[in-house]
Design a protein around this nucleic acid. Structure first.
Lengths: 337, 337
DNA sequence: GATATTAATGAAATTAAATTTCATTAATAT
DNA sequence: ATATTAATGAAATTTAATTTCATTAATATC
């Protein structure tokens, strides 16, 4: 096996030249940068020479390393902090005291014990430290009976963001391009989804209406049964189903296909019938969900894909369509006067 | 009184020279730095090139972009913040008020103007933003004409995640608890939203139906005009409007309130009529969106709040309701055999 | 083992900081 | 010119953090 050669770190003397080159690239490729925030990590060999000492470690590392030297009250506090780090910056001393089953004064003392002048400063320092961490420390995926509404809110934010991020893992570049191409040239676009997936269908309907496309969606399956047979090879049928096994979605997809329409499926990457049979597959990830709660995160992945399709078409069609839309809105405003 | 001159931002051409000078200073004063992390904020006028669209922006960018719409007091505060961003997280309202030569109340108001629920939260959000070290050469918030579908997909993922995250900055803990309490004890819950906000209304309708609540939503405003007057003080009306100025939403909210129903608003934190008049405000952040593209990210924030309400109520009501729902689903499956 | 001293701890009081309220002034609409 | 609305700062109130004080626990000394 060939070992990857580690990049040699820059010396201080090489810095101006290297940074200059980077800035030239920015200047070249960004005519009018809005904001460009970047940090440069200058990592030097951290094997310390004789007489040198490591003066820095992260806050959480310090808490973890000093755990055994803590009193039992300090241990309770640090255990809670280490397990719920992301929640701490928005907590009061009272809230943390309650959660850790200690007094507020102990919380204040703990901040001082760990080397921070005040709990307020501790929270800000922790917030900054967590902002640069790529993974979460707090296990946000477990919903607990005793969670406060705010804690549940934090968890919802986390799992929704995570779901959207995992869409990157499932969606195929080429499939997306094919879908965009098919939609762009469609005479008519019909969307269909049931239950939670109907949210994405309605959202798509709304967005593509704004883009000026001839679109259709109705939650009434029987009504759709009388509409879909009128599709032809110039049309696109967008089937949205997390599982890919929803009977009504499958039935309509098959009819549309029989009529020559291109069937785009927004469905989980797996071996479902819809996944197998669709002409174009926009794969959503298999986000694991407690079946009791029902689908929340998967809807976010569907909506992100719908957003992407909309943005892609919008970018192609350009501002002309927008102008028409704006005219309509202005007209409505006028009518109200 | 002498007006303070606004800081002129660096042009791209001036960057290499300025950074070079900074690096020389580092080289001179640090013989063997272990870690040296710094960030450079380059604020520029967001004059977009033809074919470019703005999909979202950071806190400091928001402040910078909205600068011209600020009152003179707001301008003083934002000027100070933009010039001393790193200092703000550790300042009190009094300190910032003194530095900016405004009142403390104005500082509190400014945080709300910029879309953050409190000054305390503003400080934490700013601290986190400043701590982020990710190196952006491509600005994920700017949509460019030449972007491929995959690149646009990456951008959509980024701004949608970011929008959900910023919901933490605006939603107030206490408001959430009040809303959860009101919903839990409601005899009937009516949802209403128009356009993009109707997606969140439909999603809420679907979720609270599953929880066993008596719920209602219809996109037909006139139909709702005949339904809402039948509400009473045991009921809850959930108004969903990003801007908080949508006439139909306002009208229905006022009728509901007149009938004694509790009005919960899911709306942007600002001075809109809906925000002022609602009994309970679930504040969504002012995610800055290019009006030409329309609201994408704000819908994600609304849906996240709806998810949170659902999860909170679900957690309280317990699995009992789920069993009833599961029975209904099993029954449907049986009917198909 | 008893006693004295020190440390840990929580309740309560105090202080600090944030936020809201109220009155005044400025800006805008009619 | 007048009325209305918005902006603003001072002051009051509320929230949150911190300090103080008394009690209990742990440790050291005899």
């Amino acid at each position: 096996m060939v070992t990857k050669q580690e990049p040699a770190p820059l010396t201080v003397g090489e810095l101006p030249h290297a940074v200059n080159g980077l800035l030239q690239q920015i200047s070249t490729h960004s005519q009018s940068p809005t904001i460009c925030i970047f940090a440069i990590l200058l990592l030097n060999d951290q094997t310390l020479a004789k007489g040198e000492y490591n003066m820095a470690s992260t806050l959480l590392t310090r808490i973890y390393n000093q755990f055994n030297q803590f009193s039992k009250t300090e241990k309770r506090i640090s255990t809670y902090i280490l397990n719920h780090a992301e929640l701490i910056p928005n907590m009061t001393t009272k809230e943390l005291a309650l959660k850790a089953d200690v007094s507020e004064a102990s919380v204040i003392r703990f901040a001082k014990t760990i080397g921070i002048g005040s709990f307020k400063t501790f929270k800000i320092a922790l917030a900054q430290e967590l902002a640069v961490k790529e993974e979460y420390i707090t296990d946000f995926t477990i919903l607990q009976k005793k969670d406060s509404p705010h804690e549940m809110f934090q968890k919802v934010v986390h799992v929704n963001k995570n779901a959207i991020e995992t869409t990157k893992e499932s969606l195929n570049k080429k499939d997306l391009e094919e879908a965009v191409h098919a939609l762009k040239n469609a005479r008519k676009i019909v969307f269909y989804g049931i239950g939670g997936s109907s949210i994405a269908a309605i959202d798509a309907l709304y967005k593509f209406t704004k883009l000026g496309f001839q679109v259709e969606f109705n939650s009434d399956f029987h009504y759709m049964l009388s509409r879909v047979p009128h599709l032809n090879k110039k049309d696109v049928f967008v089937a949205i189903s997390m599982s890919g096994k929803t009977k009504e979605v499958l039935d309509l997809s098959r009819i549309a296909q029989k009529k020559g329409a291109k069937v785009i499926a927004i469905t989980n990457i797996n071996k479902s019938p819809l996944y197998k049979e669709a002409d174009i597959r926009l794969a959503t990830p298999n986000v694991e969900e407690d079946f009791r709660i029902g689908s929340i995160t998967s809807r976010m992945t569907q909506l992100t894909i719908v957003d992407t399709l909309y943005i892609c078409i919008f970018n192609m069609v350009g501002e002309h369509v927008l102008e028409e839309f704006q005219e309509a809105r202005d007209y409505v405003v006028k009518l109200r006067r």
